[in-house]
């Protein structure tokens, strides 16, 4: 794996605090025989809260993660999962004149398949 080309945050701790105002789900990208497969880690996100947009070669997944146990769980002891708005944009090599996109939700993972339509 190549080292990240970005500025290493530890050089200047306060730079770390610079952030987007939404969280970014992790994503795996696969090459398939006839196109691409993207897996977004969206555990706990309701399907109706996910929004997928395809714009040419850009695939943008956005939405909201709502804390589904917020009310019944009583008081928190600690919290690290990111809630509220998320957004992730992946740009694929432009090889499709007419992309076909299919979505599938499975065990908290959003699977996005892209192929020539």
């Amino acid at each position: 794996m190549d080292r990240p080309k970005q500025l290493p945050a530890f050089f200047f701790p306060s730079l770390q605090s610079e952030e987007r105002t939404y969280w970014r789900p992790s994503v795996d990208v696969y090459r398939t025989p006839n196109g691409w497969l993207l897996k977004f880690d969206l555990a706990g996100v309701r399907p109706e809260d996910v929004h997928v947009e395809v714009q040419g070669c850009l695939i943008r997944v956005s939405g909201v993660r709502r804390d589904l146990l917020a009310e019944e769980a009583g008081s928190y002891y600690s919290m690290e999962i990111s809630y509220n708005r998320f957004e992730r944009t992946i740009s694929l090599p432009c090889e499709f004149a007419n992309p076909h996109v299919s979505l599938e939700g499975r065990d908290g993972i959003l699977i996005v398949r892209v192929s020539e339509g």
């Binding site: 770390q16 605090s17 610079e18 952030e19 987007r20 105002t21 909201v64 709502r66 804390d67 589904l68 917020a70 009310e71 008081s75 928190y76 919290m79 809630y83 509220n84």
Partner: peptide, 29 residues
């Protein structure tokens, strides 16, 4: 400031109550 993270230490009873209330929401806002 917007776009920035900030660590906070919460001790005041009213502040704690506010934070508890926020944590009990879906969006933590």
């Amino acid at each position: 400031f917007p776009n920035l993270l900030m660590p906070l230490s919460v001790g005041r009873p009213s502040s704690r109550a506010a934070v508890e209330a926020v944590l009990a929401t879906e969006g933590k806002e």
